[in-house]
Design a protein around this nucleic acid. Structure first.
Lengths: 107, 107
DNA sequence: GCGTTTCGCTACGTAAAGTGTAGCGGTAGG
DNA sequence: CCTACCGCTACACTTTACGTAGCGAAACGC
């Protein structure tokens, strides 16, 4: 399965709308988690593995390649880090944390 | 695989932190897309299927059960709709759209 | 009543994706 | 050299997703 990109058909949408590519990409296992773990700076492959306890190196590498392909993650001196665009995505994801906390609170 | 919930261990995290449960839940295929499609109001099962062109009824039903289990989606007169909590999640996800558009724009 | 249509959803066989362990080749330090 | 990490790959296995077919229930017209 190729890396979803804006402007091209993705799984579940032939329109090529950016949001559809994003939803496809982020809806793959561990993708959101990896972005979350990288929010405070670069991590090495092995540190990232440890942060996402239980992810297999196969999938981690696949996800990293997809994210690099989408210019969201890049290799830096300190390991894998967010690109400027990836940083924007990470910020767009922040509200999730406060939502999750309110979700956890009893209704 | 059980529905991830805050306060319990989930895939990749034994801490039970709400954000981890959220990332696990949202990182399953079609989950984000379903939430996205429900943002403007309830849809019937079949309308939802059509909106997510290509999703198989098996998976759609599984995702809907998980989302209902997490009190994010509920059955209403008009089909499947967001709960108050689900509405909050939908709002927390809004920034994704504008990010995706900037992502699509050439750097 | 009786066919037709639409509904939500399940069955089930196939295909794809993710998992887990082992370990390779590379680099850096002693 | 030898040890100890590093990023990453191989590969057999399990889980998840896909796709088509179709069921039973309800809602319409006739």
């Amino acid at each position: 399965m190729p890396t979803p990109k804006p402007g091209r058909p993705v799984r579940g949408s032939r329109t090529g709308r950016p949001i559809m590519a994003a939803l496809d990409l982020l809806g793959r296992r561990w993708t959101l988690r990896v972005l979350w773990e990288l929010r405070d700076g670069p991590l090495t492959f092995r540190a990232l593995r440890d942060a996402c306890e239980g992810v297999s190196p196969t999938v981690l590498n696949t996800r990293l390649r997809e994210l690099q392909d989408g210019r969201i993650v890049e290799k830096t001196e300190g390991g894998y880090g967010l690109t400027p665009g990836g940083l924007g995505l990470s910020k767009a994801l922040r509200p999730l944390d406060s939502w999750a906390r309110s979700w956890a609170a009893p209704s």
